[in-house]
Design a protein around this nucleic acid. Structure first.
Length: 257
DNA sequence: TAGGCCATCTGGTCCT
DNA sequence: AGGACCAGATGGCCTA
């Protein structure tokens, strides 16, 4: 089959469909039994959700035999499974770069929490970038000079933030916030110890989120809502959604749809 | 046990 | 026509 070989279940405690077999044998489990049972039932009685392909009367898919329909269904299911696995892999990739505590003792962020947290994180970074730009303008005296430089060398100073300029101090700021909690930022940033502690980073107001900053990102706070609140980081829950800032960057980043 | 979260199946719709 | 995408349904696992 086309198979979803290599696709790993992103969920550590995945339900019964844990596919450790190579391609093609992913039905070696309860689901396959269920599938077979259902197919048998469908072919006999025909109640349920496959009315128009189980009854045998309405061969909507032209002249496909039952085996061919079944084969087609399996292929479609496999593709859908693969698609969802890819989606979950992307979701895992997103979780990896989110500043929350990773580890065996920490429960994985749910999908919705991951998305909401990612949104807040992007907003926070955008805020930080704006502040950073202001700082640069302050340091170099004139914003006009900086702008003229940027205009003169658009390739060097594009509208998009240069990663080594923005991410580095941002990572340090985040490290100062996160403290000893491990995060995916370790991949991109120098260790927190190397961060100059003397230069006071624009911490809480700078980062623009209103959760308590002192806490470490080890354990989520369990509040009344269904979301878990992590101290010191943008909270994914709707109650803690930050108000959109007025910067054009944030406007362009806001999730409008 | 209820509720949240998830994976999967399935049929419909849209796109190429 | 085939594939991608989407949403509803279903059932399992886990936690409070």
């Amino acid at each position: 089959m086309d198979s979803d070989a290599g696709s790993t279940c992103s969920r550590s405690s995945s339900p019964d469909l844990v596919v450790d077999d190579p391609a093609g044998t992913f039905f070696s489990n309860k689901m396959f039994q269920t599938y077979c049972q259902k197919n048998r039932v469908d072919s006999e009685a025909g109640p349920g959700r496959m009315e128009h392909c189980s009854g045998g009367k309405s061969k909507t898919r032209s002249e496909l035999s039952k085996e061919e329909v079944q084969d087609l269904r399996l292929k479609v299911n496999s593709r859908e499974r693969k698609r969802m696995h890819d989606l979950n892999q992307a979701m895992d990739g997103l979780r990896e770069v989110m500043p929350y505590a990773h580890g065996p003792s920490v429960r994985k962020l749910s999908k919705i929490s991951t998305l909401l947290l990612a949104r807040n994180y992007i907003l926070m970074l955008s805020n930080s970038l704006e502040e950073m730009k202001k700082l640069v303008v302050d340091v170099y005296g004139s914003g006009a000079a900086a702008q003229s430089r940027a205009a003169a060398h658009p390739a060097i100073a594009p509208a998009a933030p240069t990663p080594h300029l923005s991410l580095h101090p941002l990572s340090q700021s985040l490290h100062s916030l996160v403290g000893s909690a491990p995060s995916a930022l370790q991949h991109h940033a120098p260790p927190a110890s190397s961060a100059p502690a003397s230069h006071s980073p624009p911490s809480t107001s700078f980062l623009g989120f209103h959760a308590p900053v002192q806490g470490l990102l080890k354990e989520p706070l369990h509040l009344s809502s269904s979301y878990r609140h992590f101290p010191g980081m943008p909270c994914p829950c709707s109650l803690c959604q930050p108000l959109p800032t007025t910067t054009s960057t944030l406007h362009s980043l806001s999730m409008n749809k």
